[in-house]
Design a protein around this nucleic acid. Structure first.
Lengths: 135, 135
DNA sequence: TTGGCTGCAAAATATTTGCAGGGCT
DNA sequence: AGCCCTGCAAATATTTTGCAGCCAA
């Protein structure tokens, strides 16, 4: 039997996974798995790190969250906002800022598609100094 | 004594580090540390993975190479080409393509600087399908 | 009832670091 | 000579996985 390389999986409702998603959608700090664990542990004392990773993978596979690896950060971080946007990481305060997708970038993708590259995912991370730290 | 947070370090010439740099400058496969280790081991039998990491950090600190984390790749990868360019990772063949910086992006940075963000580093990784795999 | 969901602990990966000896300047 | 560079091995850090019991459909 020939299998499609994207296996079809069915998922059930899980209160824990739902809560993880909601947390990430309300949050703007781009937490790592461990930070997420520490934030949710008080309200979910039975939560385990292993299962948190499992649920993060599922949410990512469903395109409900984004996994990001900003330059300078060792661990993967998670973002509950899946609309196209840019991450700017300040090297001074280490905060990660969300910046809306800029129209200029649309042209970039258009140019690429003319060259035969079909873009499905975009990860743009900038590093530098944020307005707060500059002043 | 007050220390600057960017400590001033002096480095000596090291044949090993020099060779790592040259390899990365001649290479376009964006190898991981382990791949680099395996590629260099034959000509440098005494090479150790630990020291390879140390040298990669030094080269990165000197801005002679770039450390990248393309989406979908677990480990960090290294790139000896530090001019501004974009990475496109094909989800089908897993190759990473270098694409020259497009002029549109310059406008993006200009807009950001007007908002007070000073950009020192730029990491753009796209995911999708490359022309070869599309046909 | 079936098969996904969960916690726990162990395992697998990836990266960093202490130490003793060797090499550059 | 002084101090960075190196290999080796041990230690960390991060993420994945096996297993047995639980829960949703």
């Amino acid at each position: 039997m020939i299998m499609n390389n994207s296996a079809i999986k069915s998922y059930r409702y899980s209160r824990q996974r739902q809560r993880i998603l909601e947390f990430l959608q309300d949050d703007f700090s781009h937490p790592s798995a461990l930070e997420l664990y520490q934030a949710l542990k008080p309200e979910m004392p039975s939560l385990s790190l292993g299962n948190l990773y499992r649920n993060l993978h599922i949410l990512e596979e469903q395109s409900l969250i984004l996994k990001i690896s900003p330059p300078g950060s060792n661990e993967d971080r998670y973002d509950g906002h899946v609309h196209q946007h840019i991450h700017f990481r300040c090297g001074s305060c280490h905060k990660i800022f969300d910046i809306d997708m800029l129209p200029d970038l649309k042209n970039t993708f258009h140019t690429l598609s003319q060259q035969g590259f079909t873009t499905q995912e975009m990860h743009i991370s900038l590093g530098g100094t944020c307005p707060n730290c500059a002043s």
